[in-house]
Design a protein around this nucleic acid. Structure first.
Lengths: 213, 213
DNA sequence: CCTACCGATCGGTAGG
DNA sequence: CCTACCGATCGGTAGG
């Protein structure tokens, strides 16, 4: 709680499509890497401290415990996703189709550009109840944002799915899944993957492929 | 390596839509439950032994180590999914649309009826390289089966997606995702969830919703 | 399957 | 009084 807090971590005043190199406190950065490789319980605080090049007590000076590292990382991650998704939705305006496309694009870009951060979603089980509740609330909020848009699109006949809630859950799961397989040195860029997932998602919510909209 | 091995575990000669109560060796069953609650590294062998009601050494009499429990569980799980999916495909015959629907239905039924087993997929990172390679190979085989069907359907104009490989990956991820949220006491039965995912998946691979097929 | 244990490492903290 | 740590070790538990 000195010079640096968690505010300076992710998205200061950046456009939602723009991704600077991830600027995390070295301890958070190394913890993220270790959690990615071995999982939360498979990572020792000594491993994290070793990667950073400090002693274990030094680590405990900056963060209360191992749990605080995971909680901070996950909250940083979901808040950045939410911020960018909101920005994308705002930029798209009122049209449900444009909003949906922008939101999906922004979420997939987050998953790809911040893959290691997004991958930690698999560790929510290791969050203490209070931390998990806060994280899940933010994720649920994202889901409701997207569902509102799909419902609005349904009302205008843009989306044909008879099961919007299931479709939105499926779309978010397939977007989240990008963090499981995307690689920076893979055949597709983050932008290409985002574009493809917009297309896939439109199919999932039943946006007619044939008619010119 | 004595009386019981892993063969008697899952799917003897059952129809792919029929799910008997999960018949696992008590040690595997309790290990599965513990891994679901706390993850692989978050589970101690004493915890498992305690759930079973045996001592730790007793546990090691049946299984070489903790890793063998996870590897056996994951292999049991993916092999049962594959068996049922193959049966569903065979039952559907040559028509790509019917095959696709049957395969997706069978996979989602597996995820829902064998949720705790399917959820262990999140623990592949904790598998030793050799075990992981075997598991991933089987999962890849499932993906190729589904991709072949989607390609065949594309050739006949049944599926419109221009990106079949991405669509199949997305479909499998959304099916796998069912294991993350499905609850037996939830609002939908496994069969309803499977039906809905067939519909969602058809949209994802671009099966035209309007024309009467 | 049990009792009796091992070398090492776990998350976290002491005094300075 | 603060910050940013250190070498050493705490009580318990890991897989075997």
């Amino acid at each position: 709680m000195s010079t640096e807090t968690s505010q300076d971590i992710a998205a200061p005043a950046e456009h939602w499509r723009s991704y600077r190199p991830l600027a995390l406190h070295p301890i958070l950065l190394r913890a993220m890497e270790a959690f990615n490789e071995h999982g939360y319980h498979g990572t020792s605080v000594r491993d994290i401290a070793g990667r950073v090049g400090v002693t274990v007590p030094a680590l405990y000076y900056h963060y209360a415990n191992k749990q605080a590292l995971l909680a901070t990382l996950l909250e940083t991650s979901i808040k950045d996703v939410l911020d960018r998704c909101r920005a994308a939705a705002a930029e798209a305006g009122d049209d449900p189709l444009a909003r949906f496309c922008g939101m999906v694009e922004s979420i997939v870009l987050s998953m790809a550009h911040r893959r290691q951060l997004a991958f930690l979603d698999t560790e929510i089980r290791s969050l203490e109840p209070e931390n998990r509740a806060r994280y899940v609330a933010l994720r649920d909020y994202l889901e409701h944002m997207l569902l509102d848009t799909v419902e609005a699109g349904r009302a205008r006949g843009v989306f044909a799915t008879p099961i919007p809630a299931d479709a939105v859950r499926a779309v978010l799961i397939m977007c989240q899944g990008v963090a499981n397989w995307f690689r920076e040195d893979g055949p597709l860029t983050a932008e290409q993957v985002a574009e493809r997932h917009v297309l896939l998602s439109l199919g999932t919510v039943g946006h007619p492929p044939a008619p010119a909209s």
